[in-house]
Write a protein that binds this DNA or RNA. Structure first.
Length: 479
DNA sequence: TTTTGAGTTGTTCGA
DNA sequence: GTCGAACAACTCAAA
C-alpha cells in the first residue's frame, strides 16, 4: 500500500470526492493547508472564513468517524507539502481541481515540482459538472451567451454518476502533527457573527439535509417562489457548493431522482429551472477560465474606457451599511451584513443601483460582496457584477436599470422582507413601506419614522440618475 | 462564407 | 388598471 496525501481544498466532503475515492484503497493521509498568502489579492473575507472554520471542524469529525484524521497545517503551500511528504514518506498527492487563474498557476507549478521529484500528482474533477475546456462552440471557442451554453450542456447530458461515501480509511500515524482549527484564527475577533449561527449550518451532512429539504418543500414551486425575498424558495446551497461540502453531481443526481419519483410535468419544469441555475454556476467558472482578465477588466471591450467612479465616498459607505434611504436596498444590504447572504433578486436590485444609478465601478460592489458573503466565489462574483454592470457575458442590456421602488412593490408587496431587516420602518404601513419619504410630517411622527432622523434621506434621485446612466450607457453601446 | 435567429431576471409611456 | 411598444443595434452561435 502506498501513502497518498489527499489534499483537501474546496472539496470538504467525503462522499463523491473523486480524489479521495481514487486513493481510498491506499493509505490516505488527508491534509488541509491554510495558505492565505496564495490567495492575494482576493483573500477570503471574514464571512467566508467563518464558514471555512466550521466546515473544517465538520470534515475533521467526519474523517474521524471513518477511522482517519485530518492533518491541518499553515504556511506556504509548496513548503508545507514538501515537509509533509518528508515526514510521511508519501509517494503521491491527489486533489480535486480548482479553476481560478491564480490557483491554476500555483497548482501547475506544484505539479511540475512534485513530478520532477519523482512523485505522483493527480488531480480530479470534483467541483464542476463539465471541465471548462469541455464545453465549446462549433468553432472551438468558449461560449459567451448562456442559452447556447445550456443547450450544449444538455446535449452532453448533465453528469450524475456519484461516488458513494467512503466507510473506512486506514489510520493516520499519531506522530503526525496537526494544528487545531482554532489556531487558524478564522473566526472574527469581535463578536458580529451571532446571527450566522441562526442562519447557517456548515458541513457535509448539513448540506445534504439542506438539499433534501429544498427538494421536498421548495422545488415544486421554484420558478415562482424563488423571486420573493421574504420566502425561502431558493436552495441556499451556494456556500455549501463553494466549499465543496456538496458536489454539483450530487445535486443533479438528487434532482433527477425526485423528478423520477414525482412524475409530474410541472415539477419537472421547475426542476429544470433549478438545474439551469446550477449550469449558470458552471458558466461563470467557464468564462473566468477562458477570460482570466475579467477579474479586473470588463469582458466587453466597449467598456474599457467606461467612466465608472472609483472613489470611496459617503454614498458608497451608505450603500454598504444599508443607509441609502431606499427600503429594499437597505433591507438587502443589512441582510447581507447580518447573515452573510442576500437574496438573489435583491442582489440584482442593489447591484443595479450601485453600478447604474450611482455610477460606481462594479469592482467596488464586487469587493464588498467578496468580504461579506458566506458564499463568496470568485468566478460567480466577478461574472455577476459584470453582468449587472452591463459589461460582462450575456449582460443586462444598457436600458435595464432596476427601479428599487417598483421592484420592491412587485416582490415584497407587503413589506415583510423590508420590516424584517429595517427596524426603523416597522410601524410604517404598507402604503408607505416602499416610499417612506412620501409620508407627511404628521405621519412620520405617528409611525415613529422621521425621515432624516430615524431613517435616512434618499442618497440619490432615481429619475435623474437613471437618465444620466441611460445617456452614458447608450453612448458606450452605440459607438 | 453567409445568413438567420435569438438573446435570465426591466421601466416607462401612452393608448 | 392593463397592455403593448419602445428602448438599439450588435454579437453570438449554429445552420
Amino acid at each position: 500500500m502506498r501513502k497518498i496525501l489527499v489534499w483537501f481544498r474546496r472539496d470538504l466532503r467525503v462522499a463523491d470526492n473523486p480524489a479521495l475515492s481514487a486513493a481510498k484503497s491506499d493509505r490516505v493521509i488527508p491534509i488541509y493547508i491554510h495558505a492565505p498568502d496564495d490567495e492575494a489579492p482576493w483573500q477570503p473575507g471574514a464571512a467566508s472564513n467563518w464558514w471555512l472554520h466550521h466546515s473544517l471542524l465538520s470534515l475533521q469529525d467526519r474523517l474521524k468517524t471513518i477511522g482517519s484524521r485530518l492533518i491541518i497545517r499553515q504556511g506556504d503551500t509548496q513548503q508545507v507539502l514538501s515537509r509533509l511528504i518528508e515526514e510521511t514518506g508519501a509517494e503521491a498527492v491527489y486533489c480535486n481541481r480548482l479553476y481560478e487563474p491564480a490557483t491554476i498557476k500555483r497548482d501547475t507549478k506544484l505539479k511540475k515540482q512534485l513530478t520532477d521529484q519523482g512523485l505522483e500528482y493527480r488531480s480530479f474533477s470534483g467541483s464542476l459538472l463539465f471541465e471548462p475546456w469541455q464545453i465549446k462552440t462549433g468553432n472551438d471557442t468558449p461560449y459567451k451567451v448562456y442559452t447556447p451554453f445550456w443547450h450544449a450542456c444538455e446535449k452532453q447530458g448533465l453528469p450524475h454518476d456519484i461516488q458513494p461515501a467512503i466507510r473506512k480509511l486506514s489510520a493516520v500515524s499519531t506522530r503526525l502533527k496537526s494544528m487545531h482549527v482554532d489556531e487558524l484564527q478564522l473566526l472574527p475577533h469581535i463578536d458580529w457573527d451571532a446571527a450566522f449561527y441562526e442562519h447557517w449550518q456548515p458541513g457535509e451532512a448539513k448540506a445534504q439535509k439542506r438539499l433534501r429539504e429544498f427538494i421536498k418543500h421548495d422545488l415544486a414551486d421554484y420558478d415562482r417562489s424563488r423571486d420573493y425575498p421574504e420566502r425561502t424558495g431558493t436552495s441556499r446551497l451556494s456556500p455549501h457548493l463553494h466549499f465543496g461540502e456538496i458536489s454539483p453531481r450530487q445535486i443533479v443526481y438528487a434532482i433527477e431522482q425526485a423528478r423520477h419519483t414525482v412524475q409530474s410535468p410541472t415539477f419537472s419544469k421547475n426542476a429544470n429551472s433549478y438545474l439551469r441555475e446550477i449550469i449558470w454556476r458552471e458558466f461563470t467558472h467557464h468564462v473566468l477560465y477562458s477570460f482570466p482578465d475579467t477579474l479586473s477588466k470588463p469582458l466587453n471591450p466597449r467598456f474599457k474606457q467606461f467612466p465608472w467612479q472609483n472613489r470611496q465616498t459617503k454614498l458608497l459607505r451608505a450603500w454598504q451599511l444599508g443607509q441609502t434611504g431606499f427600503p429594499i436596498i437597505d433591507a438587502g444590504m443589512r441582510e447581507l451584513w447580518h447573515t452573510g447572504i442576500m437574496h438573489n433578486r435583491v442582489r440584482m436590485i442593489v447591484g443595479s443601483l450601485l453600478t447604474k444609478n450611482a455610477n460606481y465601478h462594479w469592482l467596488q460592489g464586487a469587493k464588498w460582496f467578496w468580504d461579506t458573503l458566506v458564499d463568496a466565489d470568485l468566478a460567480q462574483n466577478t461574472f455577476n457584477w459584470q453582468w449587472i454592470a452591463g459589461c460582462g457575458a450575456d449582460a443586462a442590456p444598457y436600458f435595464r436599470i432596476f427601479n428599487p421602488v417598483t421592484q420592491s412593490e412587485k416582490f415584497d408587496k407587503n413589506g415583510n422582507y423590508i420590516r424584517k431587516w429595517v427596524s426603523e420602518l416597522r410601524d410604517v404601513p404598507n402604503k408607505f413601506i416602499h416610499t417612506p419619504w412620501e409620508m407627511d410630517e404628521q405621519q412620520q411622527a405617528q409611525y415613529r419614522c422621521r425621515i432624516g432622523h430615524d431613517y435616512p434621506e434618499r442618497i440619490l434621485d432615481l429619475k435623474q440618475t437613471r437618465e444620466e446612466a441611460l445617456r452614458l450607457y447608450k453612448q458606450t453601446s452605440g459607438d
